[in-house]
């Protein structure tokens, strides 16, 4: 296996958990699948549509998102928005993220404490 393959596998592994948190944060304002896909790509998290759509539906099933069909436009679109439970989860995950970021930073600077 060459280095690029290992790198992309490692990045994928790193990002897998981040996508959920990023979606929850982005959906503090309502959004639909493809717009979200673009926004994620914009912050360097490339996700495939065939992964993101089922993921959103799963988060909705878990009560973290609420959805609404928007029929005003040319085509009906399903808009998602974060729920109260989702907001609570986001707070916890964000705290965790900060802790990890902090620890990794310290490790990177050779500080073992």
């Amino acid at each position: 296996m060459d280095f690029d393959e290992i790198l992309s596998a490692g990045q994928q592994e790193l990002r897998r958990g981040t996508v959920v948190l990023a979606c929850l944060l982005l959906l503090r304002k309502p959004g639909y699948g493809y717009a979200l896909l673009d926004e994620l790509r914009g912050i360097g998290l490339s996700v495939d549509a065939n992964t993101l759509y089922p993921l959103l539906r799963r988060l909705e099933g878990q009560g973290l998102l609420v959805s609404e069909w928007n029929t005003q436009e040319a085509r009906p679109r399903k808009f998602y928005r974060i729920s109260l439970v989702g907001e609570r989860l986001t707070t916890s995950l964000l705290a965790d993220w900060m802790r990890i970021d902090d620890s990794i930073r310290r490790l990177a600077h050779g500080d073992t404490r």
Binding site: G33, Y34, L37, A49, N50, R77, K78
Partner: peptide, 14 residues
């Protein structure tokens, strides 16, 4: 069904 139709339509537009 509508969800998958929307997904496909969005993908085609993109």
């Amino acid at each position: 069904e509508p969800e998958i139709r929307a997904l496909v339509a969005d993908a085609i537009d993109a």
